[in-house]
Design a protein around this nucleic acid. Sequence first.
DNA 1: CGCACCTTTACGCAACCTTTACACTGGCCT
DNA 2: AGGCCAGTGTAAAGGTTGCGTAAAGGTGCG
Lengths: 230, 230
Amino acid sequence: MHAVLIIDDDNELTQLLDQYLSSQGYHITVANDGEEGLRLATSQRHFDVILLDVMMPKLDGFEVLKQLRRTHLTPVLMLTARGDDYDRILGLELGADDYLPKPFNHRELSARIKAICRRLADIPQARRQQAITVGDLAVNPARQTVTIRGEEVSMTATEYALLHLLMVNHGAVLSKEEISMQVLGRPLQAFDRSIDMHLSNVRKKLDANGSEQVIKTLRGSGYMLVDPAS
Amino acid sequence: MHAVLIIDDDNELTQLLDQYLSSQGYHITVANDGEEGLRLATSQRHFDVILLDVMMPKLDGFEVLKQLRRTHLTPVLMLTARGDDYDRILGLELGADDYLPKPFNHRELSARIKAICRRLADIPQARRQQAITVGDLAVNPARQTVTIRGEEVSMTATEYALLHLLMVNHGAVLSKEEISMQVLGRPLQAFDRSIDMHLSNVRKKLDANGSEQVIKTLRGSGYMLVDPAS
DNA sequence: CGCACCTTTACGCAACCTTTACACTGGCCT
DNA sequence: AGGCCAGTGTAAAGGTTGCGTAAAGGTGCG
């Protein structure tokens, strides 16, 4: 029972796919444009595979893929109307897992999804996440820890998620609202100080292990992790 | 007198095969779907050869093979309806020993099984399975036991499977869901504490035999076997 | 029936997250 | 300049929940 996200602006096609893949035992979610798709793909919800159309209004498939790959390694199967190699190569370079030119038949699609899921089952969840290094810091997704100059610092799940998010977006400001959504999976409410607390705890742990103060506060707008190198 | 396990959802076929191969002097066990097959194949019972159909409900042949290969090197002969190379290559990559496209005639099947058994006779029993060592611990797949600094500790099948899984993935976090799927062959359900219990028992046994506490709990995420050397 | 094993139940603990409370900070207004 | 106050830092208390494990219950097997 795998969860599949379909991102395509062609309503007729998505309905057909929804119907067919549901009948094959997949749990389907549909997004009708790139923005919505990206939001869903990066939300707390889990998808095993994403079917991503290239040609879309607002955000095209490549753009979605590029942004998605900043934070997620969810397998992506690209769909494109044009059969030329250029699209294909670009897609694969950006980290797509497979490629299917339209029109395609349903069984072929089903086979490729299955193949992706099969490959997926080989890799433990924890290894499916991005490893990132910023300055002295490195996240270690396989073991949910952060290392400072090679030394391991233990973090709770939430602290890890918070620091990971900051590192992925290092150099950019993240509002508390965004952080709350990404880390806690819920909108920030009035008088909610949880994020502040987790952040304080992260800073304390980093400090205790000899890291510089890399998490900067931007009063009124949010937080940012600065890369001392850049 | 070799033991053969047939995993195929086609009842008619399995009956025919059972009859035919029994007449050839093999001892036959039949599983009608992938789940049952995997359970049997990884149980305490010994099989010399496994005939594995690719197309099956629940767990397809590739999946069965992949999961089987985590712990066992039992020879596998893949059966598939489609004659295309893709399946064949995938199967062999995953560690199948031979490949037979349907439809096949009985004599051909018999010949291949014989060939596998012949090859088998060359390899000492104990060599046929993967051995893993992590720190003080070593698994002994041939006897389904674990040794701590050479000293043997008896384990039940489930405990062995659990520890083996942790050792194969040492250094990475495994969620309870993954562990349940791999070790018990079923999805984790609400209030299911089986994994906790087996884990507790494994820890107890390791502890009683003087091993360090190598199984780490990551609250909310899962468990990890840490290699003290790394 | 007895045995070995797996699963479920039950309870206590500790880790974790959130809330509360209070001190502090920096910008803005007068 | 000084006062005000929303925004922030963090210690400590409170509440929740996942986890560890003993013990009971269930199941399959010889």
